[in-house]
Design a protein around this nucleic acid. Structure first.
Lengths: 235, 235
DNA sequence: TTAGGAATGTTGTATATACATTACCAGTTA
DNA sequence: TAACTGGTAATGTATATACAACATTCCTAA
């Protein structure tokens, strides 16, 4: 492995393991250069790349610090419905409908890369904005990677927040479609009439495998999914 | 401006102006170093950063080349329905429903940052996959930035392709929702019964301002929007 | 006490150099 | 013709050095 890569790996593990929490200072270029017996330019490259990846922030004259994890991906966290609601200065609360350990349905087992019939952790939570249900979060979790998933209080923090704490997520794939809700979903969403719903299927993976598969259903009349992206950042 | 930045700017303009088309070779590090009277490391940095931004591709031993523009953003081009269909080895064809110059409706004028009542270019095109309509593309275009928009043959290439040629796009913002289609949309989509539709509103901007605003409507039964993202790329 | 300034440490930019690794081409050989 | 060989040029990694720009701390002088 290249020298700058070993330094990156070293720092990366410090952050991932939690040994260096948010805003924790990272060794300076000169210190790294000496401890790893490399030139400053090589140590510098490691820090520079980590900063471009958003893991650390650097300020001239001050130093290098572990970046706040929440900023790691606007695209990932934007789907944290609780934050989104609070951001609008609205009230958020959640109702846990289901919290159980069940044999994995076939499609779920495949998604989580487990054997069919293996037990998985299952939760269904309704999220309310100002008292009105805006999302049903139907989630299956890999019990090997997150054994204590069922022991959390999801009226206080969201599953997404807990999963982010426990396992750093590295990947996410999404599938978005428009569907009509099932009877069950209509109950949970307190819909009297069927209406088009935006359904987001989302699979998140960490370094050790697929962590969780979630199906997020929003009533079309109460929800829009916004996004923004820029392409050539340096101009 | 820093030296490496002026070199980047130089190359950027070559690409943006079209003087260097896709796959055109970019001056080597040594050549750039000499012509700009900088060290090779400085020229190198310019090329390195351009490559990280996806504007050029570099291969050791071979050289640096202008990257194919379509790869600039998987997330941007993924919404080029024609490519997507052909990628699946399916037949694609398009029917132009409307192609006109009209006074901008209020919301459109705001989106395109034009005065209300200013004339804008308007197109509605239905895209077919294997003979079945899968998308209605309802698009308004800023006539100042793309005056010849109406003169193209959109049965051959898509508006998106043409716009990419004419003005390099730098930004896009999306709004996704689930809706029931209007009567008009149902006709264009050849739907007998109303069904949930995935509607994507998309505004693209170039360096000179907002280029176009499009509303893409897909029948829920015939379309899913897939995406994939990775966060910490270097591991 | 407070304002100002010097000292120090940190990151940012730039240069010169060396060698490693790879791609490509031309010329040679089997 | 086909395969091998070597040369050349390009990018990738690494080092050593110098100076610039900025932040922070601490000490001094008003």
């Amino acid at each position: 492995m290249a020298k700058f890569a070993t330094i990156k790996e070293y720092i990366y593990k410090k952050i991932e393991s939690g040994e260096w929490p948010e805003y924790h200072p990272v060794s300076s270029e000169n210190v790294l250069a000496e401890t790893f017996s490399v030139s400053r330019m090589t140590a510098r490259r490691a820090l520079h790349e980590l900063s471009e990846e958003g893991l650390v922030t650097r300020t001239r004259g001050s130093g290098t610090f572990v970046a706040p994890l929440k900023s790691q991906s606007a695209l990932l966290t934007i789907r944290n419905i609780a934050d989104e609601i609070r951001l609008r200065n609205h009230r958020h609360h959640a109702v846990v409908q289901i919290l159980e350990r069940v044999p994995a349905p076939k499609s779920i087992a495949a998604a989580l890369q487990l054997a069919v019939g293996a037990e998985v952790l299952h939760s269904v939570i309704t999220h309310f904005e100002n008292g009105q249900p805006v999302q049903v979060e139907d989630r299956y979790v890999n019990p090997e990677l997150v054994p204590a998933y069922l022991d959390q209080d999801y009226t206080q923090s969201t599953p997404h927040e807990y999963l982010c704490e426990v396992t750093p997520l590295t990947e996410a794939s999404h599938l978005i479609e428009a569907v009509l809700p099932s009877e069950q979903l209509m109950q949970w969403l307190e819909l009297d009439e069927p209406e088009p719903c935006l359904q987001i299927q989302r699979r998140t993976s960490g370094r050790e495998g697929v962590v969780s598969q979630a199906t997020l259903t929003h009533p079309g009349s109460r929800f829009r999914l916004g996004g923004h992206m820029t392409f050539k950042p340096s101009h």
